[in-house]
């Protein structure tokens, strides 16, 4: 039942990302809610669910994204799947492992975006992208994942350990 209830919630993530988050951005940087959702579902519910959810969220997100069509689909699917793999190999999915996993996956996914969005541009532009977008977004994603981790743990009936 909880899993069914999560479907409309997940479908609402893209509209929230498009309409509400721009008003709540910090220095023009917004967290990527779909990335956080894919990562946490991977951590909590396993790699296949994480990968499939990441694929669908990324697919929908790509239609409201000004860049290449497949970029969100692939990165979110990969993050969902890989976070499931990480969860299988770490001893806990406590808040700190969720935070650091999110940080690493956000940097990895941001690097893919950087390579595609700033393709063929000079190194100054690339370094600006790293310092002004990639790292700030990773930190924001990490912070949002902490809040989402707390909610997720309560919702799924598990107190966060650690």
């Amino acid at each position: 039942m909880k899993r069914l209830a999560s479907i409309p919630f997940m479908l609402l993530l893209v509209p929230v990302q498009v309409t509400l988050l721009p008003s709540l951005s910090l220095f023009g940087i917004r967290p990527d809610l779909c990335l956080v959702a894919a990562c946490l579902v991977g951590l909590f519910a396993g790699r296949v669910r994480g990968g499939v959810l990441g694929f669908f969220l990324g697919f929908v997100q790509d239609f409201f994204f000004a860049g290449t069509l497949w970029l969100n689909t692939l990165t979110k699917a990969a993050v969902g799947y890989l976070s499931g793999v990480v969860a299988k190999n770490v001893s806990t999915t406590a808040w700190y492992s969720a935070f650091f996993s999110m940080l690493v996956f956000s940097v990895a996914s941001g690097t893919v975006f950087l390579l595609v969005a700033r393709q063929g541009m000079d190194m100054g532009v690339v370094f600006h992208g790293i310092s002004a977008v990639l790292f700030p977004q990773a930190v924001l994603d990490g912070l949002v994942s902490l809040v989402a981790h707390w909610i997720f743990s309560r919702w799924m009936g598990h107190a966060p350990s650690g």
Binding site: V14, L21, R30, A66, G67, N72, F113
Partner: peptide
């Protein structure tokens, strides 16, 4: 009605 979903494209 909204902004693009990514920080990488304006």
């Amino acid at each position: 009605i909204g902004r693009s979903t990514s920080n990488w494209y304006q």
